[in-house]
Computed example of a mutant assay.
Amino acid sequence: MKNVIFIVLLIATSFCFGFAFKTVLTSQTKTNKNMKKVTGIGGVFFKCKDPKKTTEWYQKHLGLETNPYGASFDWYQEADSATKASTQWTPFAENTKYFDPSTKDFMINYRVENLVALVEELKKEGVTIVDEIETYDYGKFVHIIDLEGNKVELWEPINNN
């Protein structure tokens, strides 16, 4: 029960503070004050014993509209915008290697703008970049490690996400 409460609080907190991160992180950029770093939360991922049953539980008890990847929360980038966006919620198997090299049971995906330029800045700042930027039909991805050893996924969505 404590894990369920923790996960629900984590998801709620992530959504609430996602937009605040954009303002704070953008204003703290030293090398290029116009470069946006984080623009929102792209997803919250966590490990569990049985992802299928966990997804079904959230669907039944909390009303999440689930899909094979978890659940997507659609929203608009600005109050008067027609640009649709989404935040992903996904349970992973407890033995997944996707979060490696982090030993944590969760990973947060941050939406960013201009991933290539951001990665260059992060390299200059000594941030550990785990892999190379990969491009898919829904955007570009790369993983970094934060100061606590958490693996963080950075995602630059394509224009229609």
Rank of each mutant, 00 (worst) to 15 (best):
K124C: 08
Q59R: 05
L115N: 04
V38Y: 11
M1W: 07
H61C: 02
E56W: 00
T29W: 14
T39C: 03
P157I: 06
V119W: 00
S27H: 13
E156Q: 09
P68K: 05
K52L: 01
V38C: 03
N109D: 14
Y98Q: 02
E78K: 14
F45A: 00
V24M: 11
M35Y: 14
N34S: 13
F73Q: 07
K49C: 03
T66W: 04
A117D: 14
D105P: 04
T55A: 03
K140A: 06
L10I: 13
S81E: 04
E65C: 09
P101S: 02
T13V: 12
S27Q: 15
Q77E: 14
E78L: 10
D74W: 13
I133E: 01
K22G: 00
H61F: 14
T23E: 11
W89Y: 11
P91R: 01
E113L: 05
L62I: 12
N34M: 12
P157Q: 01
L154C: 01
D100R: 10
L62V: 08
E56A: 06
K104P: 03
A20H: 14
I129Q: 07
D50F: 00
A93G: 05
L9R: 10
L62E: 00
P68E: 03
I129W: 08
V116C: 02
N159F: 10
T29A: 11
N159E: 14
F106E: 08
G70E: 03
A71Q: 04
A117Y: 08
E125R: 04
T23A: 13
I144W: 11
Q77T: 07
G139A: 00
E94H: 09
T103C: 04
P91A: 01
L9S: 03
T103D: 10
E78N: 13
G42F: 03
K49N: 08
W75R: 04
I11C: 08
K104I: 05
C16V: 15
N32W: 10
N161G: 11
K37M: 08
T135D: 07
H61R: 07
T54M: 01
V152F: 04
T26M: 06
T54L: 02
G63T: 07
K53R: 11
E148G: 08
V24I: 15
Q77I: 12
K151N: 12
Y58M: 01
P51C: 04
P101Q: 02
T29H: 15
D80N: 10
V152W: 07
A117V: 09
T31D: 15
S14F: 09
D137F: 10
V152H: 09
F15Q: 11
L118K: 07
T29D: 12
D80W: 04
V116G: 01
V44K: 02
G126K: 09
F106L: 05
N3V: 10
A12P: 09
N160W: 14
L9C: 06
E120A: 06
V24H: 15
Y69I: 11
I108E: 05
L10N: 10
K36L: 13
K2S: 10
Y58T: 05
T31S: 15
G149F: 07
K151S: 07
G126M: 08
F99D: 05
E132S: 11
P68S: 01
T128Y: 06
I11L: 11
T87H: 07
K104N: 12
F6D: 11
